[in-house]
Every structure is written in structure tokens, then in C-alpha cells.
Write a protein that binds this DNA or RNA. Structure first.
Length: 216
DNA sequence: GACCGGATTGGC
DNA sequence: CCAATCCGGTCC
């Protein structure tokens, strides 16, 4: 199925681990200022609601920030971290479950120049080439290979919190990108979560020479 | 009202 | 290794 239409609500209302796994290879689309910024999702993490020690909603915590997590599947949960960056999740499962999938990495496919320039303009310095015409795939990937970085490059900010991912300008679709393998491993940066830090709830693809291996 | 620290990043 | 930088969350 590669109909280039937004994934439907039913895609997201399944359990968070399934959604996290199946978002790999799908294309995140954000149209901003008339330009379509697109990236193939190559890394995700599932946060599994009130029983998941690593989740912001652990223990049923329900605050202004976490309220978005309790929406049903298919909404953007965007939060600020370290006072500097924002990270983007997509909610999963049913209303009240507080499951969400963190988007940790994408590979730019459309609007590459715009993403590169956004990252150069708004991101903190990185020793990459000054000119877009010199940019290698590995350089471009460096603009979106992290949860904070991809939000900078794709123009995703706190305004997008609570956005419906079935909207015209912000959604995920299947452009037909595939990988020979989807790997899983423990989630990143959640050492505080005890045993939950070991659960293999991070999904990602193989890379070679600093670029994800896409087939087809 | 105070205090603590983070689902990150880039530079040293 | 560590600073950046601010607000959410918690406790008093």
C-alpha cells in the first residue's frame, strides 16, 4: 500500500509497540510555508502508558504537559526537553491509555534543501558543509538523526502539540520505502527507569557509512 | 515558593 | 566529559 494518503486513525489506535514498529519506513510529512518537508522514519521508541516507568505518564500522572498523551492514537505529543529542544511523539492506542511513539530519526526525502537550511539556521553549530550543493547523504542525515534535530529541521515546535496527525499539513503516509530488517534494542536516555530501561522498545534500521540502508 | 532534573545535542 | 537553559513536577 503506497497510496500517499495519510495513515488512518485505525493505524494509530493499535498498541504502541505495533505502531512504533510499523512507523518504521513510513514518511513523516510537514507542510510549512507551502513547502512539503518529508522524511522516512528510521528510528522510533514506544512509551507504553501508565505502567511504563520511562513514560511521562507513569503512575497515571496527568498534568498540563502529559494530558496530550491520553488522547486516542494519531495525535502529536510535543514536549520541550532540557529547556532547549523539542521532541515529537505520535499517540497510540485508545483514549486514556497514554501510549505514545517517540520519533527519533528520519531520512530527508523531500524539501531537503529547506530542512538543511532550517537546521543550519536554527540548530546549534555542527561542522557540516556550508553549501547545500556539497551536501552528501550522510551530511543531510545529520540534520534529522535525533529527536530534537528532526524537529528543528522539519519545523516542528510546541505549536504542534495536540495536532491531529490526520490533517492536511501534518501527517504520516506510506511512500513505499522498505528495509531488509528492522532491529530493536533498549530505549535511549532513560537510565532512571530501572528494569524498563532494558525493554527492547526502540526500533531502528541498519546504517552503512552513516546512512540508513533503504531498499526499494 | 523553592528546588531538582530531564525521552538531547554539540563541543572539548 | 559537560554545559546549555527553562519549565514541568513535586513537595513544603
Amino acid at each position: 500500500m503506497t497510496d500517499r494518503e495519510p495513515l488512518l486513525r485505525e493505524f494509530y489506535t493499535r498498541d504502541g509497540l505495533t505502531v512504533a514498529r510499523e512507523l518504521i519506513g513510513k514518511t513523516l510529512v510537514h507542510r510549512v510555508d507551502g513547502v512539503e518537508l518529508c522524511g522516512v522514519i528510521i528510528e522510533t521508541e514506544a512509551y507504553m502508558g501508565v505502567t511504563d516507568k520511562a513514560s511521562h505518564a507513569y503512575g497515571g500522572r496527568r498534568t498540563n504537559r502529559t494530558e496530550t498523551m491520553y488522547l486516542c492514537g494519531g495525535y502529536a505529543y510535543v514536549y520541550r526537553i532540557y529547556g532547549i529542544y523539542v521532541c515529537m511523539n505520535i499517540t497510540a492506542s485508545v483514549e486514556g491509555s497514554a501510549e505514545a511513539v517517540l520519533i527519533r530519526g528520519v531520512l530527508p526525502t523531500d524539501g531537503c534543501r529547506e530542512m538543511f537550511e532550517r537546521y543550519r539556521k536554527y540548530g546549534r553549530r555542527s561542522g557540516m558543509n556550508a553549501d547545500f550543493s556539497d551536501v552528501t547523504p550522510a551530511d543531510l542525515y545529520k540534520c534529522t538523526n535525533g529527536p530534537g534535530k528532526l524537529c528543528i529541521s522539519m519545523g516542528i515546535g510546541m505549536e504542534e502539540n495536540r495536532a491531529d496527525m490526520l490533517s492536511e499539513n501534518f501527517y504520516v503516509r506510506d511512500d513505499g520505502y522498505r528495509f531488509d530488517e528492522v532491529l530493536c534494542s533498549p530505549r535511549i536516555g532513560i537510565d532512571y527507569a530501572g528494569e524498563a530501561a532494558l525493554y527492547p522498545w526502540r526500533f531502528h534500521v541498519k546504517e552503512r557509512k552513516g546512512v540508513p540502508l533503504i531498499i526499494r
